[in-house]
Amino acid sequence: MLYKNKQILGVGVFLFVIFVLIPWLIHVSGRWDFYYTLTSVALLSIASGGVWLTFYIGRINIGQGAFALAGGYVSAILVVKYGVSFWLTIPLAGLFCAFAAVLIGFPILRLKGVYFAMITLVLTEVARLTALALPITNGARGISSIPLPGELSIFGLTIIPDFSTIENVKLAFYYLAAVLMVVSFAALYRIVNSRIGHLCRSLQQNEELASSIGVNTAYLRVIAYAISSFMGGISGAIFVAISRSIYPASFPVKDSIDFMLNCFLGGLGYVFGPMLGTLVIYFGWDVLFTTGKYQLLIYSSVLILLMLFLPNGILSLRLPGKKGASK
């Protein structure tokens, strides 16, 4: 009971920090640019959360950029060409990605380890090339000047006002991203601690053994991959609404690798690891921006040193139940 109280307290503090304390601090300090950074962190951590779920079933996923790009394009095309409400396009983008993930997942989820990693990396590049080639995505010029999200109302009751009438759009986007992040991670937490989550953990440890005691591994893998891609899709869709443009190069291979790094740095054993990892990596990258052209050099050196001295990750040193399973 005490443990549960502690957990509720932790969640309460976390919600207070992101919804009250951070906006207040930004308001006091006047650093409005932080909203953009934090919004990005929230959205990227949703996508990373998806990658984390594929890690959870024992697959290294470097293809999340493809789904973020696909989600972004679905939202942008629906909003610009068909005039669909932005709010409706978020779930549609997610569902589109989930559906694509099921189609792609059936063949490629049979691959393991490095092989799966390779094919997902290829997938990222293919998504970019597809966006370049298809007529509907407008090729290399991309889709720009996407309107701000409109009003969301049910039965004439306004739930979310039109973004163009809001005075502080940055704050609105921050709240949107933060709410979605909280919902996504709550859902992820729920999944991981449900029956499906336990079955997924059995996949991570020993797939053959799991399937021999009657776990439908193929089905579970595809489900997990679809959920993962769904999260990539919605994060991509909102990103597009913020930057108000999308290009084939919006989510390059580096993003896909970053999503994987976020999970890894935050710790693979913890649901909330991707959030922490994204925050650290994004802010680290931002801080290094002041070093100019040495940014990438320092960033990659830190990464290499981290691997050299902590090859099993920072928090994942305590990865549960993995000791006996690997080799």
Partner: peptide, 27 residues
């Protein structure tokens, strides 16, 4: 060599390789 000796999972070498790719790009 040191990373392979110390790590327990194959992801570690992949991340190292990704880091090296960024590093060489920077160079």
């Amino acid at each position: 060599r040191p990373v392979i000796k110390k790590s327990v999972r194959e992801e570690s070498t992949m991340l190292l390789a990704a880091g090296i790719a960024f590093f060489l790009d920077a160079i």
